[in-house]
């Protein structure tokens, strides 16, 4: 199933590529940070190896995230994240596939900051959920910085927090996305 999804995602990427190359922007060094605030401790992890492509004509875009690339301050937290919660050996990647619904309000050829409404499907641990969030695009010549901050409930993706650590890990974590996109040649 996981490989079928990978294939589908790659197919979408390839279709986007062939349809309108000039309108595609991409990065392989996007950043996703998550932050968990709980009574006993706060936990933060950062991944700076996120791949993303956006088609500025249609508003379609995709993300692909290698889960083991999340780096934590503490080695033990990183170990628990990969082994107990995300189970990176079973679910090595997460992805998002969606589109900007107010694409008509964004002019990617004019520098400025634009608010974007985004909806799509977020897949973590092979669980796919429809989400709808707000973000911004800062257009600067041939570079676009996409940014968004939103919350996700870990239970939505079948991540179970044992009772013993319920005061260490938040049920809802804050996710921050920053993707510096460059025009594809």
């Amino acid at each position: 199933m996981k490989y079928l999804k990978t294939l589908l995602l790659l197919s979408v990427l390839v279709m986007m590529y062939h349809d309108v190359v000039a309108q595609n922007y991409m990065t392989r060094n996007g950043m996703i940070r998550f932050y968990s605030e709980a009574p006993l401790e706060n936990i933060e992890a950062v991944n700076r190896q996120v791949s993303s492509v956006i088609n500025t004509e249609t508003g379609e875009f995709v993300f692909r995230v290698v889960m083991r690339s999340f780096n934590f301050e503490k080695a033990l937290m990183q170990e628990h994240f990969n082994e107990n919660y995300i189970e990176s050996h079973k679910y090595p990647n997460a992805s998002f596939q969606g589109r900007i619904t107010n694409i008509d309000e964004i002019n990617f050829s004019v520098p400025g900051e634009y608010v974007a409404q985004v909806e799509g499907e977020l897949t973590i641990r092979d669980v796919t959920r429809s989400i709808s969030k707000t973000g911004t695009f800062i257009v600067n010549g041939e570079e676009i910085l996409g940014k968004s901050t939103f919350d996700i409930a870990v239970a939505d993706y079948n991540i179970r927090i044992p009772t013993a650590v319920v005061n260490n890990i938040a049920e809802v974590v804050e996710v921050t996305v920053e993707v510096p996109l460059k025009k594809m040649n």
Binding site: R28, S51, M67, S69, S88, P92, N93
Partner: peptide, 12 residues
Amino acid sequence: CSGFSGSDVILE
């Protein structure tokens, strides 16, 4: 080895 992004293998 962190994994495969679909196009690249990531080593950190």
